[in-house]
Design a protein around this nucleic acid. Structure first.
Lengths: 203, 203, 203, 203
DNA sequence: GATGAATGAGTGTTCATTCAT
DNA sequence: CATGAATGAACACTCATTCAT
């Protein structure tokens, strides 16, 4: 996280973050291509020139927001990630991802913008992504090592069992599926069982 | 003259499609936000003004490309989609999606750009998407009706069992996973079995 | 006049004049600045390139139309201009000018566009204007020579006594004055008497 | 900074007016159709983008200039308009109009451009025109009410007696008539007497 | 002669960035 | 530190003109 000062331990009021939040809001509403420095300045309540005291240029603002958004998402999803059994940890993360992805919050909406960008800024961003999603990585590795999960690359297991969480959340957010708590629980369970190595029936 | 000419009976070289392919290429490389009409003109080897003989404005060019890309993808994926059992059909589509998604072709790369756009042009595009992916929709409905698939909305089944296909393809394309034919076959099978209602062991 | 062929002695059907009439119509409706070669082509029912067989470029088209419109106006106004007394001739021209200027015909409307242009194409156009309005010039000169009109330059007499005719017509056409035949007759008479040298009452 | 600064307490040099004066100059020289934003920028000595800080778009620049020019003209012509007898007031306005119309000043030349435009921006502009020329309107109405002027619509009286003032000015400016102070005085007197109701000779 | 597709310079306009205050 | 007026390159788009057919 990159907060600098807190008021009541809650809202950041330094200009740097003010600007970041403004950019996030605008991207959430109109997409990255609809981001102008003037808008950010207006939304943040500062002069256009002020942005350049905190960010070298537009690219860096976008990049820094990307980092920031990414860590916000990771923080939300991986709280308490180490508690409990593999299944509990998996399902907790799956549900948190899902709940997070269903939100219309600026952070989530701008995260989605970033997540599917062509290939920009690859190296640094990729490293950050790796670090942040490391808990998940670890989860899958443990499962594989314990012979519980299918013998696949952790990232493949992620694709198979976690991407559906976000995908369904997106579909619900966009109104393509009606939300139904039971279905989500079922889906979560399906995803969990999907990557398990089937145990032979004991009889 | 702008009659259609073919190279090897395959690629059309009329200006309209020339421009579309140029735009596709640029979007694939630099994203939609990096698309300027001048670039398209240069890439297509025509004058800037020429584009406007074929497309009302930039928006229409983008929209038409979106339609075009969407139907190319659908055509690639849903060839022979009605042949065989549910399982054969599912796996054929899953593998084709995967193979398609792994490509670095302009069409695939620009498809990915479009697929995750905020919410633009919703009505028409959504209709087209629906039509094109109707075979898949039908597949899931049949499975549910036959009591073979989990009792979920077709779109949810899609999210759970098909999105992983694309997600893995993306991960491979980006070098996050090393490609391994056996793993893919396994993943495909996992996805297939994931949405099946488990049958009690008969013995 | 520059007609080339007649059908039934009435409508000109060569392309040259077809294009001229089309341009006239467009200028009447949208002003000179709203004249595009493509529009002229469409309106005339010919291809854009065809215009260039008949006119060197846009400037020449406009210039030639200007000439053409000017001579049409002059023809309408100065028919039978030499019949009758000074007063009859003056009033006949005044009324014709007025009637002509009230029209919403393409010719009149585009004439008005041309009449108040900055200073373009001065030399040639000025000569044409002179020739065409020569009957009027002559009328004023005769009047001055006969000691009937005020001792002013013919052009000044024109300004004083004839411009009001057009000005009123314009005001009526634009709805600023309601048309009233008696008022026009009165105005015409006022203009006539205005430039006469008052004769001392005989008694 | 863009506070207003004065040179000799007279000419404003803030950017807004600088741009307006530049546009006026260009229109005076080449007509409204020859007005490009780039030219205005060059003439005003500012960057093209700067214009858009002061005017929403080209249309608004033109509209605002039109208003500005109109009020400059009215101010010049109607100073002290209420002093003296009907005849004094009429002749003072007539002469001022004439003097003004003879000038080659950008303001006058661009005024002439605007005055004869097809019918654009009618509502607002017409209202402004009405307000500004209201003194003249009042003059004619008084004259009619007092039974001194011919019983015609004020606008008709304007056409008959005032338009010649501008028409002669234009003719002189264009070199069609040689300037001669005595002739102007005569013309002014002719126009004045033209709209009077002739009084029967007292003998 | 006639066509209309193609051109490319030019238009109005936007916007990231700078810098005097 | 902060401002926001100013910049000017880049953008989407238009249109007079050319020329292969």
């Amino acid at each position: 996280m990159n907060e600098r000062s807190f008021i009541l331990g809650f809202i950041m009021h330094n200009k740097h973050d003010l600007i970041l939040r403004a950019a996030e809001k605008i991207i959430a509403a109109g997409g990255i291509q609809g981001l102008s420095m003037q808008q950010v300045a207006n939304e943040a309540g500062v002069a256009a020139g002020t942005i350049y005291r905190y960010f070298k240029d537009k690219n860096e603002l976008i990049l820094e927001l990307r980092r920031d958004v990414l860590s916000q998402v990771a923080n939300s999803i991986f709280a308490d990630h180490d508690q409990g059994s593999l299944e509990q940890r998996f399902k907790r993360i799956w549900m948190k991802m899902h709940d997070y992805g269903k939100q219309r919050s600026p952070t989530n909406l701008s995260y989605e913008q970033y997540a599917h960008l062509p290939e920009s800024n690859t190296e640094e961003i990729r490293t950050i992504e790796m670090q942040l999603f490391e808990p998940l990585q670890r989860l899958f590795q443990e499962g594989v090592e314990q012979g519980v999960f299918q013998p696949l690359h952790p990232r493949a297991l992620y694709s198979i069992s976690m991407e559906p969480s976000m995908a369904m959340a997106r579909a619900i957010r966009r109104g393509l599926i009606e939300y139904n708590a039971k279905d989500i629980t079922l889906a979560c369970d399906i995803c969990w069982r999907a990557i398990l190595i089937p145990t032979p029936p004991t009889n």
